[in-house]
Design a protein around this nucleic acid. Structure first.
Lengths: 357, 357
DNA sequence: GGAACCGATGTGCACGGTCACATCGAAGCT
DNA sequence: AGCTTCGATGTGACCGTGCACATCGGTTCC
């Protein structure tokens, strides 16, 4: 459409060069901010680009430099609030650094599904990888077929073959549990995440540590699937025997589902049973009762992952990462343990209503 | 590392060709499933690829074919459940079709922010665009600087310059409102989404239609920002005058925040005030009371967007899209309107508890 | 039995950039 | 004055793949 454009093809640096009456190499230099270009020449080239509506061809550049300027994100459950938030932050941060992001979601949890997603990313010639699919198995697959590019995981694995952004979930979980213990609870149930998940394990460890420190009886944690539905059904089951006074759920969804079950049984949170979640999803403070939980900054985590990864990609020294400790947020779902355990009393009071927004 | 690999460079089709004792073109043909290749030759080539761990270079291929095999997603609020779910579905579907997805989040709502994100995608040479950033302004920007590739939007705009996946939100909202009207509510407040949003407008229109059909008094809708926090604060404000008995919120988060405010004022849902949301996010059925809302299938929407877009990209005839009507899910947050409007009575009963999981 | 055709494969170039090296005039140094 | 250095620019090759066209042996057809 543009009269200057020679063929039906998009304009290339040679078209720009012709119009600006310079060599194609000079155009290339302008593109790459080469120092030794006369300001006047640069202006002329830029004007020609503007006229032709020139856009550099990323494929051509990638071909010759063998740099794709793309980072991969290997994700699972990207629908959940936490991962989704981190992914969005990763994309923003990457764009800021002039990078593109390619996400592959793990379809199922099989090793094959993981390998498929990884293969998809490798075909894209990614320069680095952010792993936000925090199942132990993912790292096994990664170890079995090395990607050959630096990678960062958003969860701490304890392995040393890559960098991990250590949000100290163990301490977060420990603090949540200690909060319950401080309130006088002695029988505490842990609704954990799935077996294979690193975060689930870390949170469980924090729970176990706190229980051990306080020398309390240990009930084996219930392994869940992070969903509110699971929290609900687990609650229905658990509440058949009222032999506990508090629950620490490994995420807010399960906590919310559990609270639903408590109400269905005609019991009260926190009057009869205190509940703590993990993550502080946006609705956590608006459910009834407002959920005591552990806050972690998913955006910041994503941002830092990109910074860390790009450092590695550019071959810079990677500094030791300081641990971020998530913060306990006390709301209305926790209260002092009922003094007398009355198994039949379903109409316990509702003390300690400290709802806040 | 591999003895066959000539230099430090990754193997190319010529390396494969040399090993298989064919020409590079034959290798290319094997890659592209050209019909006239002898099975025996194909085998030999495939074996050579395997030996060399050959991976096609996407950049080179994109350069010569000028096809990037990438689709762009222009998104905003990709952190919310709905968009996040659709994006994940888009990525899965695209991968299934051998396509890559590049997402750009709109940083702020300014025209500049939108143009930036779009520019980012265009530099990537996307073949098609899915718009999941349902603000009217986005379409203005798109109209001002045409992208030159087919695009599909996940929300109906009424414009005819592109395809829109019409989930019929107007009807969904109308049904939600009618549900309240059928329960005897006469004063209904609408917590709407932000001004600029297509979905917000559609849902508001459905609300207005239903109110108009029933010949009820119209209260101007309150424009919110989709957040639970907003729902809460709007509720605190609205409830200073109890001149309504039901609320239709444009999404579940605002509904949940509003219900929080109702409780804070010592009132009861649905005894004093019925609440309907929109979206059916996973926790909606587990909050108290379980939220009556309108379900829409975000995964399916994303999947269909990709199918539609790729049809266009491949120049196929694009069939008219049938409208999907979202489904009303009745739960415990709605009940018959209180017969007598007792302004001071804060302890209304809790009829119609039909909680279900 | 020779022309036309077809299946299977090879040859060379083009895609749009960047890199290494060449060129060339002006300025600096001895 | 002659040599070196440097800034500003040009020339040609190359990255890995696909396309257009050429080649070549074997059938088919009249």
């Amino acid at each position: 459409m543009n009269p200057e454009t020679p063929k039906g093809r998009a304009p290339s640096i040679r078209d720009v060069a012709r119009l600006a009456e310079v060599s194609h190499q000079t155009v290339s230099r302008v593109l790459n901010d080469h120092p030794s270009i006369r300001p006047e020449t640069r202006e002329r080239v830029l004007a020609a680009m503007e006229t032709l509506q020139y856009r550099p061809n990323r494929a051509a550049r990638a071909l010759v430099t063998s740099r794709s300027h793309t980072i991969g994100v290997l994700a699972s459950t990207s629908t959940e609030y936490g991962p989704a938030t981190s992914i969005a932050a990763i994309e923003d941060a990457a764009r800021e650094h002039g990078y593109y992001v390619n996400t592959a979601n793990i379809a199922d949890q099989s090793a094959e599904g993981i390998a498929d997603a990884l293969e998809h990313l490798m075909l894209q010639a990614i320069e680095g990888l952010v792993v936000i699919a925090p199942q132990v198995r993912v790292f096994e697959v990664l170890a079995a077929s090395p990607v050959g590019v630096p990678f960062v995981s958003l969860q701490s694995t304890g392995r040393s073959d890559h960098l991990a952004l250590s949000v100290d979930q163990v301490t977060g979980a420990r603090r949540a549990t200690q909060h319950l213990i401080n309130l006088g609870h002695r029988q505490i149930v842990h609704l954990a995440g799935p077996q294979d998940w690193i975060e689930a394990e870390a949170r469980m460890r924090g729970f176990l540590d706190a229980i051990g420190d306080a020398d309390l009886d240990l009930r084996p944690p219930i392994l869940g699937d992070w969903s509110a539905d699971f929290g609900y059904f687990a609650g229905r089951e658990l509440l058949r025997h009222r032999d506990f006074t508090a629950v620490f759920a490994a995420n807010d969804q399960m906590a919310i589902g559990f609270m639903h079950a408590v109400r269905d049984m005609g019991l009260d949170v926190p009057g009869d049973i205190s509940v703590v979640g993990f993550d502080d999803i946006p609705v956590a403070q608006h459910v009834w009762p407002p959920l005591t939980t552990v806050y972690q900054d998913y955006r910041e985590t994503g941002r830092r992952a990109v910074a860390l990864l790009l450092n590695q990609v550019h071959g810079e020294r990677v500094l030791e990462v300081e641990q971020v400790v998530p913060r306990l947020v006390v709301r209305g779902s926790t209260a002092e343990a009922p003094v007398v355990r009355a198994a039949g009393d379903a109409t316990g009071g509702a003390p300690g209503r400290r709802s806040r927004v």
